[in-house]
Structures are given as structure tokens and as C-alpha cells.
Simulated assay, not measured.
Amino acid sequence: MGVDELFTDEKAPGERAGRRSKQRNAQRHRQGFFRTIVQILGELLITAGVVLLLFIAWELWWTNIDANNAQQHAISAFAKEFQGPVAPVNSGAEPKDFGPPVVMADIDSPGKVFGVVYIPRFGATYSRPLVDGVAREQLDTLGLGRYATSTMPGGIGNFAVAGHRQTHGAVLDAIDSLVPGDKIYVQTKDGYYTYVFRNNQIVLPTRADVLLPVPTEAGAVPTERFMTMTSCNPRFGSEERIIAYSLLESWQPASAGPPAAIAAQVAANSSKG
């Protein structure tokens, strides 16, 4: 064996060990890099999850609290200006016919609160402001908004309103619980209008014909006094719309006091005004 061969044999194991060490270092480096990437992605996903949960909590909880406070303030302001007794004047007497209902002039003033809606089916203390307009700035804050193309409460034709179902006060959350015969009361400065729920309908968002003077009947001349409530469907979605139709049963002026069914809530609202 020559000297060169001897040195070659002596260096070979060291070189092989060096190569293996470099390979292990490279492998550890790659593993460390991928581990870091996975950790970063995991942290980003956790952060995104927390942000999503906070957003859902804000949508389903805080917007309701914020809107409820604004709506109660609006009801109190309306009650403070309302002129009329807060208890029935002829309690226990036979219902009186007050003739054709007084119908407010179209106010065409988006954002103006001009009434209060009471729906006992939704709870004994349910009362929500009635505001002109159905833009986000009205529905997200003040509750039930009147479509500008519809009539005013008590008018011949279609008095149509919209409201959120799960957020921003959830004013129509229980719209699907209405049953035929349920009463819906609308209070304005002129008095109280009693509508009776007839039926509901599930439609696509493009079905604007539900807002026609005679709902869903294009070209028909109205002879009745409708109330139409619209909201999103299902409860946590907006793929459809749920429509609730009612007909005016009676009305009474502010001087007669409220219907007995809502007298306690009218008085409660007045005491906060």
C-alpha cells in the first residue's frame, strides 16, 4: 500500500462522517423551517378564529344591546311627545266605531320615528320604534322601517315595513311564530291601528311584488288596508325573505286611549318618556 493510498483510506471515514453531519444539519434545518411555517400558520389560524368569534359575538350580542338602547330612547322620545291618555277611556265598554281611520300624510323623512309597533305574540313587553326608511342607517339602529313606496298606517293599500331578524335589535326575530288571528298594534300621534295577522310567505329577495298596493297582484286596485312585514330567512341567513301579511281590523284615536291588550306597555313606555 502506498503512502497516497494510506492517506486516502485514513481521510475517507472522516469525510463520510462530515458529509453525514452536513446532511443531518441540512435535514434539521429543513425540519426547523417547516416547523416554523406550521407554527406560524397555526398561530394565524388561531388568531383568525378568535377574530371571527369576536365578530360573531359583536354581530349577535353587542349590536342587539346597542340597538335596543337606541330603540328604547326613540320610544321614550315618542312617548314624551304623544298627546293622549295612556289607559283605555272606555275600559270594559262595547267597542266603539270611530269611522274611517285617520291616515298621516307621507312624511318622506328617512330616519324620523313616527310611531311604535306592539306585537303581543312576541312578548308582553314587545314594543319597537316605527321609523321612516329601510336603509341600513335606519334598520341597524331604530328597528322597523317603513318602505317609502308604501302607504302610511291605516291607509288603503299596503303599509309595508322591514326589520332585522337576528342582529341590530332582532326586531322581527319571532316573525315565524305568528299565527292567524294574532294582533299587531301600530301607534302614531293620531291613534292606534289594530291589524290582524293572516298568513306568511317565503320568497326570494327579488320578489318586490310583495310591496305592491295589493301584495303580489300587479295592477290590482287596493280596497283593503294591508300591513306587510318583511325580514330575512332563515334566522341566521339571508338567502330568502319571510313575509307576514295582516289586514286592518279597527282603529281608535289617541283620545280614546290604547287598546286594552297593550295598555300596560303603552303606560310603561310613557313612564320612561
Rank of each mutant, 00 (worst) to 15 (best):
T223G: 13
A267R: 07
A260E: 15
I262F: 05
S246V: 07
T228L: 00
A260K: 13
E217F: 01
P222Y: 02
E249P: 00
A263R: 01
W251Y: 08
P215N: 02
M227W: 00
A261S: 10
I262W: 05
I262S: 10
V266T: 10
A256K: 03
A256S: 07
V203P: 12
E217W: 00
A263N: 05
R235Y: 10
S231E: 00
R225Q: 15
L211I: 04
S250W: 04
A218S: 14
F236A: 09
V266R: 08
L211H: 01
R235K: 13
A263E: 04
T223K: 15
F226M: 09
S231L: 01
T228N: 07
E249W: 01
S246I: 09
Y245A: 09
E249N: 09
T223R: 15
V221W: 05
A267T: 04
S231N: 02
G257S: 10
I243P: 06
V221R: 13
A244V: 02
R225V: 11
L247V: 12
T206E: 15
S238W: 02
A268L: 09
A263L: 01
L212Y: 13
M227F: 01
E240Q: 15
D209K: 00
T223W: 04
A260N: 14
P258W: 02
C232S: 04
L211Q: 04
R225A: 08
V214A: 08
V214F: 07
G237W: 07
E217L: 06
F226D: 08
A254K: 00
I242V: 09
A267N: 02
T206A: 15
P205G: 06
T206L: 14
A220P: 05
T216P: 00
P213D: 08
L247K: 13
Q265A: 08
E217D: 07
E239I: 11
S255G: 05
P222K: 07
S231W: 01
C232D: 06
A220I: 09
T216Y: 15
R241C: 06
M229P: 03
A220W: 02
A261F: 09
L204A: 11
T216M: 15
A263G: 07
A263V: 02
Q252R: 14
F236V: 13
L248W: 15
G219A: 11
Q265T: 11
I243L: 03
E239N: 11
P234D: 03
W251E: 04
L211R: 03
N233D: 05
R241W: 00
V203E: 14
V266F: 10
E224H: 07
S238C: 02
P222R: 03
N233L: 03
F226C: 03
P259D: 14
G219L: 10
A261K: 10
E224Y: 03
P213K: 01
G257K: 10
T228W: 01
A260C: 12
